[in-house]
Amino acid sequence: MNWIILIIAGLFEVAFAFCLGKAKESSGVETVYWYVGFLICLGISMVLLVKATQSIPIGTGYAVWTGIGAVGTVLIGIYVFKEPATFWRLFFITTLIASIIWIESGFVVKSD
Rank of each mutant, 00 (worst) to 15 (best):
N2L: 04
N2H: 13
W3N: 09
I7V: 12
I7F: 07
I7C: 05
L11S: 05
L11E: 01
F12Y: 05
F12P: 08
V14T: 08
V14S: 06
V14N: 02
F16E: 06
A17Y: 04
A17I: 12
C19T: 10
C19F: 12
C19E: 03
L20H: 08
G21K: 06
K22I: 09
K22C: 12
K22G: 09
K24H: 14
E25D: 14
S26K: 08
S27G: 13
V29I: 15
E30M: 15
T31S: 14
T31H: 07
T31W: 08
Y33N: 14
V36Q: 07
G37Y: 03
F38M: 12
L39Y: 09
C41N: 06
I44H: 02
I44M: 01
S45P: 06
M46C: 07
M46S: 06
V47D: 05
V47P: 05
L48V: 06
A52N: 04
A52H: 03
A52G: 05
T53R: 03
Q54C: 06
S55Y: 00
S55M: 03
I56R: 01
I56H: 02
I56M: 02
T60D: 05
G61C: 05
V64F: 09
V64N: 01
V64Y: 00
T66F: 08
I68W: 00
I68A: 04
G69E: 00
G69D: 00
V71A: 10
V71W: 01
V71I: 14
T73I: 10
I76Q: 03
I76R: 02
I76K: 02
I76A: 14
I78D: 09
I78C: 12
Y79F: 15
A85L: 11
F87I: 14
W88Q: 12
F92D: 08
F92Q: 08
L96R: 10
L96N: 04
I97P: 04
I97Y: 04
A98T: 12
A98G: 10
S99L: 11
I101R: 02
I101C: 10
W102Y: 15
W102M: 15
W102R: 07
I103M: 14
I103P: 03
E104M: 09
E104I: 07
V109R: 13
K110L: 12
S111Y: 13
S111W: 12
S111A: 11
